[in-house]
Design a protein around this nucleic acid. Structure first.
Lengths: 233, 233
DNA sequence: GGCAGTGTAAATTTAATGTTAAGATAATGT
DNA sequence: ACATTATCTTAACATTAAATTTACACTGCC
């Protein structure tokens, strides 16, 4: 996996912590940006559109919760992941952070190894979309080993091209658009098949099977009674 | 936490008990109001909008269960917490049978310390629901160490993902939606199982056991003769 | 001690999905 | 327009995970 596709914005008012976090995450290949207060964080987020904002809860000049709320309500940034850093034992702030829509909370102090694995786990929930310079529409979805190339209408797995027929391609595109999210059968029917078209129960299964055959089993997981989800590798 | 922000309405027909309860709770800083029957309790509730109504089950002039039902169906009071005081050994079945919807059941006699901690627990422990910006449906329920993530269809315990099969997931979702509230077996059947589907007595127990196995014992408590409740940690 | 209610492991049943191959349909080439 | 081919769907059956039941142990209470 190439973590250098990901941009992370670190926000903390203590310079030491910023450096500690930066150092450890840069070592993994991430693109790191930093800010020292909420206002700066919001401004920078709009500018660089990071995939993840890792932010202290308590900060001068607009605290983390307010900043998170502002980021969440900004167009183009709705899908930005926000994780809060909280001092251990600050139980309440954890909840407050979640209420603001935080995707995770991480307690300080934290060991570099743990930090890195938590961050990676979080980023596995987002695929990187690459938009066409002119049309602005999504061109490619990069998610771990897989790249869904909508322009060439094929999937690249570890550098190898795999062509897929339409239904399979669309099904994979849907699942990969939100890694880890469970798509119900109903949702899949709604979004991959035209309205009014009714197909049998086993149709989705067969397409899923073909995808697994071509890509490998591990990428698509079954959640029995609910649906399917894509997971990054 | 500043307990003086909370208003509690005590309802009992015995003056001694009212005084005993008032004294102990006032000492903690709560704002205490009293009523001596169900009718009065309903009237006062509408007026002062207490955070918690602590009420004897058996009373003249409309009993506690009827009063609770009326409070629950009053606009602006749906989220008022209602806890019942019951004599030890009193037949719980009426309470359970009527599905009065009490949030907790406290047996008399009760030691001041225990009373105070139960009341605090009730007021403090609420889970936070996070709704999806687009669909408006509930996305996550955050409750202390546990996060129920409906999108990914799994539970996160202190940063660790735990996957649950459907029935277990739904059962936990229900219990966690109102920490401390005792859900009767009947209520659980109604809300987790489809209508017309009848299952045996031990079915719920087995699911509860599996949940306890996966999450740890402490989160789900048995209230003998009534049902189960989730408590926050 | 004997109920009533609950806990628990293992066996059993049920429901959901996996799988294969054959048939239908749509797209493409000639 | 017809043949050809790839794709999609269906049907039948196998497999598996999950849900439920069974059978009995336990626990507190009068």
């Amino acid at each position: 996996m190439n973590w250098s596709d990901y941009k992370i914005l670190l926000v903390d008012d203590e310079k030491d912590i910023l450096e500690f976090l930066s150092y450890n995450l840069r070592n993994e290949g991430f693109h790191i940006y930093t800010a020292s207060n909420g206002k700066e964080a919001v401004r920078l987020s709009k500018e660089i559109k990071p995939h993840l904002v890792l932010m202290d809860v308590m900060m001068p000049e607009m605290d983390g919760i307010a900043a998170c709320e502002e980021i969440r309500s900004t167009e183009n940034l709705e899908n930005t992941l926000v994780a809060f850093l909280t001092a251990r034992g600050e139980d309440y702030s954890q909840i407050a952070g979640f209420e603001a829509g935080g995707d995770d909370y991480i307690t300080k102090p934290i060991k570099p190894k743990v930090l890195v694995s938590r961050v990676k786990a979080l980023l596995k929930r987002r695929s990187v979309t690459i938009e066409d310079a002119n049309s602005g529409s999504v061109n490619k979805i990069v998610s771990g080993e897989l790249v869904v190339d909508k322009e060439r209408y094929l999937v690249v797995k570890k550098g190898k091209d795999i062509t897929l027929p339409r239904k399979e391609f669309e099904l994979l595109s849907l699942l990969i658009s939100k890694p880890e999210k469970v798509f119900t059968r109903e949702e899949i029917f709604d979004r991959v098949w035209d309205e009014n078209i009714v197909v049998g129960d086993r149709t989705i299964d067969v397409h899923i099977r073909k995808l697994r055959e071509k890509l490998g089993d591990k990428y698509i997981q079954t959640v029995k009674g609910i649906g399917y989800k894509y997971v990054m590798y």
